[in-house]
Design a binder for these strands. Structure first.
Lengths: 341, 341
DNA sequence: AATAATTTTGGGAGCGCTCCCAAGTAAGCG
DNA sequence: CGCTTACTTGGGAGCGCTCCCAAAATTATT
């Protein structure tokens, strides 16, 4: 009931503190009967070793930090974040780590978070969500602090940092390839804002798909949104006069907004204009015309990020590790695949 | 650069370990010039005290746990969770606490989480999201462990536990009152599942609003959903033959599904049937007919939960504290308020 | 100027573990 | 049966802090 220590358990089991420690940590070289006796006492007394003492003595906290810069309000609407959190929490559970969460909204938040994460004795390593230009300051400070670090999403300056990212380029390329294969000729894109690596890569995939078919790029078929429904709507209005017969949107939210613009213009999806989105939002399966989109395995992504980080913690941070995760194209109605059957 | 200790700083500043400790912890009884000298060394060397050592010596970790049972998939779609996390993270920042996040999906997760949270030296207190019947086991174990605990959401057995909840009863009552004031006569409700206190309370609010007007309850105007869009749609189909002229839905998702059913039946919102929802989802401001709904101050709710917990940590857990947070009715189009003008 | 009251400073003890080394015990082998 | 080689066990030292108490320095009081 009261606060027990190793020594208390040792006394009750008639052994030494060291032996109890060995049992608790599941180390070898303890005779079976002694181990059992100690285990019984531990069970009976519901003993749990003090985490702080263990951390102090072993210089390992078995805790990792997840740093989420949430300047973007998409934190509240994009299911990416809950899925990422779930994946990372799951990875932590699996490897017996505790997860410390740092939401960084303001510079003050950052200054508060930083010493905690960088100082010894609290966390063994850090996963930081980056990929937006505004996150680079945090990433830089983290890199300088020499703590084991995994960046989720490709950072702007990926030298010497370990990161995990979705294969945005190939995913986008596949999406556009799919539209080409379905016979679309004037394929437009609504890209994301310039300040994220995600946008940059998805656009590159679009361009590569055109290039591999020997198509030239038509700049009037390229517009830029801000990853929101509104942004997609506005971008589509600019696109409409160019008579595209297909659109690859760099996010589902933008695709949904763009389809709304198409509907309001009296055109049909997918007959007149086909759509492929990106993200596989839950709602994309329920839109008036169900959206064909790129699905990212976000939960698995989170688990893998944890595994990478543990590798860095245990085996050193050099050389930096890279993991690029593949995606899946979910074919539904908006691309018009069913029309050609 | 290397790992500094209090002793190192003390040597460099020409004082004792104790004095540095006093400066670091901002304690009185240090002469101004000595304090400055120590502060300068700390600044120059970028020293941060070791968290584990501090925790071990002071028996305070300055960390709180947030336990989120996420059996329900609404974790990924309901912005309630990100907002709650944000509020709690914000509260932690404000009071210099670190947040440890535990996502509990399975029984194994629970068994993993539990010793961590209950054992000394890791967290000083716990906030657990409850209010669903399935969460009661976790709440029970937490209560038994005697660790300072705040439940977010009214638990099923609220005796001797401190909790914070939204004023669901009054909020629902106000919503229904609003419909009554607008002249609606056959007001139906789509309630949530039986296994959550939220559902129970929102239904009670509905009943109270009828009662205070001397209306009798018409059981055929009461249906039950599961908080999802689909559930609302199905419930509304049952309701339609009863010719309600208004519906109070216990969640926005259900309201949105129900409005879809109304539209498909060829009826108009709000002319034929008025709607009030609950939750104020971001999408509710963009539905074909903008949804009148109850807004909950979730971020502030989270901050307050942290404040409650800190109070329990510092001043003991007895007597249990209660906080009931007020809500706001957001009047948009679906209730028909603008029709009567 | 001497004493008392107060403030500032230093150092020992201890928080509850892990890690290392030495001592003790059992097993292996000619 | 004595010796080497394993395995098992116990205890000291130390992780880097906080807290307490006593010593030293400063200030107030008569």
């Amino acid at each position: 009931m009261a606060d027990l220590t190793l020594e208390d358990i040792a006394k009750q089991a008639g052994v030494s503190r060291s032996t109890v420690s060995r049992v608790v940590n599941d180390l070898p070289n303890v005779s079976p009967d002694v181990r059992k006796r100690v285990l019984d006492v531990i069970q009976k007394t519901d003993f749990h070793p003090n985490a702080a003492a263990r951390t102090l003595a072993s210089q390992r906290s078995w805790t990792i930090a997840l740093v989420l810069p949430h300047s973007v309000s998409s934190f509240f609407t994009d299911p990416y974040f809950p899925h990422l959190i779930k994946g990372i929490a799951q990875g932590c559970n699996q490897y017996n780590y505790t997860l410390a969460l740092f939401l960084v909204g303001t510079k003050e938040d950052e200054d508060m978070m930083f010493p905690r994460v960088a100082r010894k004795g609290l966390v063994d390593g850090v996963i930081v969500q980056a990929g937006h230009h505004g996150d680079q300051a945090i990433v830089g400070r983290l890199v300088n602090s020499k703590i084991p670090l995994v960046v989720a999403g490709r950072p702007f300056h990926p030298n010497d940092v370990s990161y995990i990212d979705v294969n945005n380029i190939e995913a986008a390329q596949n999406a556009v390839r799919h539209l080409i294969k379905l016979g679309r000729k004037r394929i437009a894109t609504i890209e994301g804002p310039w300040n994220s690596t995600v946008s940059i890569d998805r656009k590159e995939g679009y361009l590569k798909a055109l290039a591999e078919n020997g198509w030239s790029v038509n700049d009037t078929l390229i517009t830029v949104g801000d990853f929101t429904e509104e942004g997609g709507y506005t971008a589509m209005q600019q696109l409409l006069p160019q008579n595209p017969d297909a659109v690859f949107a760099a996010s589902d939210a933008m695709a949904i907004g763009a389809m709304r613009a198409v509907r309001e213009a009296g055109l049909r999806v997918p007959e007149d204009i086909a759509f492929v989105g990106f993200d596989d939002l839950p709602i994309s399966a329920y839109t008036p015309v169900k959206l064909t989109t790129v699905h990212q395995p976000v939960v698995q992504f989170g688990v893998t990020a944890v595994e990478m980080l543990i590798d860095l913690i245990e085996n050193g941070t050099f050389p930096p590790r890279r993991v690029i995760v593949d995606t899946e194209l979910i074919v539904r109605e908006s691309c018009g695949a069913s029309l050609t059957k």
